[in-house]
Simulated assay, not measured.
Amino acid sequence: MDGTGLARRIVADAAAAAADLRERTSTSPCLATVLVGEDPASVTYVRMKQRRCAQAGITSRHVALPASIGTSELVDTVAGLSEDPSVHGILLQHPVGRHIDERAAFEAIAPHKDVDGVTMHSFAAMGFGEPGFVSCTPGGIMRLLDEYGVELAGRHAVVIGRSAILGKPAGMLLLARNATVTYCHSHTRDLSSMIRQADIVVAAVGRPRLIKGDDIKPGAVVIDAGYNAGNVGDVDFDSAAARASLITPVPGGVGPMTIATLLAQTVEAATRQLAGA
């Protein structure tokens, strides 16, 4: 499943929408990125997102904060961006440091600017099928499944991982499309037997090559949302590809879709805000 090609089309559509918005309102969509400390991986991710913003005609405003910042200062910074009418979307880069209450910082993001889909409001909207912004990686996964015509209704989807911004919302979005969803995690007994029952596998646990080809039901669709050192996913690609009907590579599968979804939702947020919606 080619996430790179689909992401390119999504970004092109977002760029066209941003150009139209700019022509009508003389305002470009603006994404504020907030980075705590100088974690090399986080710095790289933020720079990548800034480059993609530029490609899509989205203004990026970067807020770099020291690793020593406390929860209250971070919350104040994020709340200030939420109140700034020139900022249309906010991305708080994870992780923020163990001494910080990350959830409190996320909740300082106004729901209408939560283009990364990390707040409790956004999760509830996903769960109840109400308007809002989806978590970007699960949202990108759903776009990939649709692109390849994967039927979800009545299919058994097994999600391995239960993080608040990946595993849990991925399951909620699949459930909303009438899939039967099973969550697996570190306490699941006989994980391999659970995976073998799946028509759709979503691997989102962050353990390199955890899932082998023998775990995959012949003909299953495999979504590898893991990313580990050395450009390795949570699925052993070669052995799984021999049994799966469709599979996402790492890199080039889910990753590009995450950023594309972020950019598309930033443009959507700007459009709503400038229309007074």
Rank of each mutant, 00 (worst) to 15 (best):
I216L: 01
E151T: 15
P256S: 05
G127A: 14
G117E: 07
A176G: 12
D238C: 01
L174E: 08
R61W: 10
A179T: 14
A12N: 12
T258F: 03
E83G: 01
V201E: 05
S245A: 15
D76T: 09
E147I: 13
A203F: 04
D236A: 12
M1K: 04
L246S: 11
K49T: 13
G117A: 08
T33P: 04
V134S: 09
A16W: 09
M120C: 11
L173T: 00
I58E: 04
H99T: 11
L166G: 01
I200R: 06
R272D: 08
F133Q: 10
A240R: 14
Q93V: 06
R47A: 13
P66A: 06
A275T: 00
D146Q: 02
E151S: 14
G37D: 00
R24L: 10
G5I: 11
G97L: 07
G154F: 04
A275P: 00
D116L: 04
G149L: 05
R207P: 05
T44Q: 11
A14H: 11
S135P: 05
K168M: 09
L166T: 13
G253V: 03
I141C: 12
G255P: 14
P40A: 10
G139Y: 06
P95H: 06
G154M: 07
T248C: 07
V202F: 02
D199C: 05
D238G: 03
A164D: 10
C30M: 10
M142E: 11
L6Q: 13
P251H: 11
I211R: 12
D214P: 01
A110H: 13
H88W: 06
H185D: 08
V235Y: 00
D214V: 08
S239R: 12
A104K: 10
S245E: 14
G219W: 09
D236S: 08
A277I: 07
V202M: 02
G97V: 08
L81Q: 11
S135C: 02
P131H: 08
R272Q: 09
T258C: 04
P251C: 06
A260Y: 02
I69F: 02
A220C: 05
A17Q: 15
V222H: 07
D101G: 06
T182Y: 02
G252R: 07
L166H: 01
V181Q: 05
E38G: 01
A12L: 04
T271R: 15
A269H: 11
V87C: 12
A108R: 13
I195F: 11
I216M: 04
G167Q: 04
G252E: 00
G226C: 00
L144W: 10
P218C: 04
R22V: 02
A242L: 13
T71S: 00
S245K: 15
M194K: 12
Y227T: 14
A241V: 09
V87G: 11
P249D: 00
A164E: 12
A260H: 08
G5N: 14
S60K: 10
D20F: 01
I247Y: 10
G129K: 13
R243K: 15
G252L: 03
G219V: 07
C184W: 14
G206A: 06
G213N: 12
A104Y: 03
H88K: 14
G3E: 00
V158C: 02
R143S: 12
I100C: 13
E147T: 13
G226H: 08
H88N: 08
A104M: 07
V158D: 04
M120Q: 03
T188C: 02
